[in-house]
Each structure stands twice: as C-alpha cells, then as structure tokens.
Simulated scan of single mutants.
Amino acid sequence: MRTNQIKLFVLIFSGFLFIASSQAQNKPGDSKFVVVLDAGHGGKDPGNRGGGYKEKDIALNIVKKVGQELEKIENIDVIYTRDSDVFIPLDKRAKIANDARADLFVSVHCNAHNSQAYGTETFVLGLHRNQTNFEVAKRENSVIFLEEDYHVTYDGFDPNSPESYIGMMIMQEEYLDQSILLADFVQKNFTNDLKRNNRGVKQAGFLVLHQTYMPSVLIETGFLTNNSEGSYLNSSTGQSKMADAIVEAIVEYSHTINLASLENLTQEAAVEIVTTEAEVDIYENITFKIQLAASSKKLEPKSSNFKGLTPVFREKEGKLWKYYYGATSSYSQIQKLHEQAKKSGFPSSYVVAFRAGNKITVNEALKSQSK
C-alpha cells in the first residue's frame, strides 16, 4: 500500500567533491562526452562505387544525420573529421580525435564485394583472423596511396603486406574492451531494430583506428554491390534508419564510465552532511536506484571511484557490470539522489526500478500502487 506524506529525517548525502587531475584538465570545462564522427573517404577518394553509388557520399550523409541527432543531446559534443566532400588523410582524421581528447571515435563506411554479399559488420582494431577481413582492411587502408609521402607518414606501412599489420594492436589494446562494447551495441541495433543481416563484430588492421587514443570502431553499414542493400543505403530512409541505430548505440555507450578518467580524480573538499525533513512517497516492494554507468570492466564500487557518491552497488547483467547509486522505496528521495548524481559528474545517469529483484520500468513501478 502506498503511504503519502510520511515525515522523516533523511540523511541525503555525505561524501567528497572531486576534481579531475591531469587528463580532465585538458578536457573541456563542462566535461561533456566527446564523439568524433568520421565519414570514410571524401574528395578525390570516392571509396567503393558498387552499384554505381559513391561510398563517400553515403557515408557522409549517414554521419551528418548521426551528428544532427547527437547534437540535440545536452551532454554530448560532436566533432566531424569532415562535413563536406573533402579529402582528409587517415592520420589527420586520427589527429582530430586525439587533439580533441575524444571519448569515442566512430568511422562510417560502406562495403563491397564481387558477389551479392550483404549485411552489416563493425570492426575494432586487431589482427584479421581470415582473408576476408584482411581484404576489407586492405581496401580501406589503400587510401594512403593518394597521400603524398605516405611511406614517411605511416613508417613504411604497406596495406597489401600482411607483415605490416603485425604489432598494430599495441596502441589500441587498452581500449579494446570498450571498442568491442560499442561495436556490439551497434550490431545489435542493426540486427534487432532494422533487421539487417548481422555479419558480426570483427577485428582487422585499420590504420585510422590504429592511430587513435580512445575506444574506436569502424562501421561497414552494408554492401553497395548488393542490389537491394545498395539501393537501401542510397535512400534517405535507409540512411536515416542506419543513423538512428548508430545514435542509439553511442548514447547507450555514453552511459558507461570513462574508467581511466575516474582513476585520475583527486579529492578536493568534503561536503557538509545535510539532514532535511521531507515528505516522501513510499512504494512498497519497489526499490529505486540511480544507474550511473554500465561497463565491461569491473570496478570496485567505492566512493573514490564514483566522485564521492555512496552507496554504490555493482551488479552483473549479461556481459556488463552495472553501477547503481542509492537504494530507496521513496520516489521523491530517488529524484533528489538523481540530482545529486548529475551534479557530481554523472549527467547521463537515470532512475531505474526493481521489484523483487527484477528490473521493471519506472512507469510500471509508479503505477503499481494506487494512492
């Protein structure tokens, strides 16, 4: 039974304020989540021309649609490696992301094959496991032949030589888990929401990913050489749907923690303990929590790892660790805790609800009991 207007003293919060040290000092002051969007090819490099289409145009259209949606989200900053039909060398694309100290690098492309192959696949940097993946990497990396002094710029890298790819993983190794996580989100959205053929999350040696210093993926949105898929990707509807699926994956990923940044947080000052009298709505058998983040990496749920917030709970759901702040049956109290979480540096956090240990929607929780 829901009980209204129960007066009680609630200990709202006791903890620590934190400021970011070395890494955060070089990030924008508002600590927004920075996404660099990279439309493959451009200018004198048309990409593949399967079906008579131009990869560079389709990739750019999709990227601009992704960017337009992400720019509507208050806590996300979008940077483009190109927003028009210009040629940008691969190393310059990576430099744009590195200079921005981006949280994500997302490169969008279209595939091609000498058959009616079809479907989407998302790549992270790694050693290609088969000839097919190697051929995709060779095709995308061959753009360097259009650049002056490419032997110098890429230290003698030869896209056609398997030996050139040995050792490429070292630079991106620490970001591999996060890159795979984003790639998995992308592929699931393509498959579940758009019903595209899922060719999976794969590894291959892409130069543009190799030179970035953040989680990075390269998305092959489909095959222009496939009669049906080429037409779909060249259509405004198809491009919009692909963009929406990518946006949803990036937003879902943005709820994860930049764990490297958290480890650099240092204590600045203690927050005064606040005791307040409040009217609280109690929902029996319902527990509200604030989801701070989801990550493939296991992190100790101590306050020093979560900008002073306590208590933080860690739970395993599928392949991810979910991190929750607070636990209460009071909806008004969880709203206050949510405000505290956002002010403490978790602007993408949100309220979740549980009944008997099972997650339900907040709306379902609020409708579960009448006044």
Rank of each mutant, 00 (worst) to 15 (best):
F123W: 08
L146A: 02
S142E: 13
N198L: 06
N111T: 05
N160Y: 14
D85V: 07
N197R: 09
G167I: 04
G126E: 11
A137N: 11
E173R: 15
A117G: 03
L207G: 04
K138R: 15
H113W: 12
V108W: 03
F105C: 07
Y165F: 08
K95L: 15
K188M: 04
Y154N: 05
S142T: 04
Q211G: 02
E147G: 08
Y165W: 05
Q203Y: 10
L181M: 13
P162W: 09
L90T: 08
F134A: 13
L182T: 03
P159H: 08
F185N: 03
N98I: 01
P159G: 07
G205A: 12
N189P: 11
L125I: 11
S107L: 05
I96N: 06
T153Q: 06
V208H: 07
V201S: 04
M171Q: 13
S179P: 03
D155Y: 09
A137W: 12
Q116I: 06
Q211E: 15
A97V: 09
L207C: 06
Q172P: 05
D149N: 15
H113V: 01
Q203C: 05
N160K: 08
L194V: 11
Y118L: 14
G126C: 10
Y150G: 04
Q172S: 11
Y175M: 02
Q203K: 10
F105A: 04
L146T: 00
I96S: 03
L181E: 14
K188V: 04
A117H: 02
C110K: 13
R93C: 09
N197Y: 13
D99E: 15
H128I: 00
L146W: 08
I166F: 12
N98M: 05
Q116W: 10
F87Y: 15
V186K: 06
Q178N: 11
D99P: 04
C110V: 02
S179A: 14
K95G: 08
L146K: 14
Q187H: 10
L125R: 02
S142K: 09
E135W: 09
L182V: 06
K95E: 15
I144N: 07
Q116C: 01
G200E: 09
Q203R: 11
L181P: 00
V152E: 14
T191F: 12
V143L: 11
R101Q: 15
A112H: 14
F157L: 07
N141F: 11
T153L: 08
A117E: 03
R93W: 02
E174C: 08
H151M: 11
T132S: 10
E135F: 09
G119R: 03
R139V: 02
N111P: 00
A137V: 05
R196N: 11
D193C: 00
N192C: 00
V124L: 12
D99Q: 14
T120I: 11
D99Y: 10
F145T: 02
F87I: 00
L90Q: 09
F206I: 11
V106P: 07
V106S: 03
V136H: 03
S179Q: 02
Q178H: 05
F145W: 12
A183L: 10
S161K: 05
N111Q: 08
D155S: 13
L209K: 00
V186Q: 03
N111K: 14
A102E: 12
M169Q: 09
H109P: 04
A112R: 15
R139Q: 12
A102I: 09
K138Y: 07
I166W: 01
T153S: 03
V208M: 05
K92T: 13
V208T: 13
Q211Y: 15
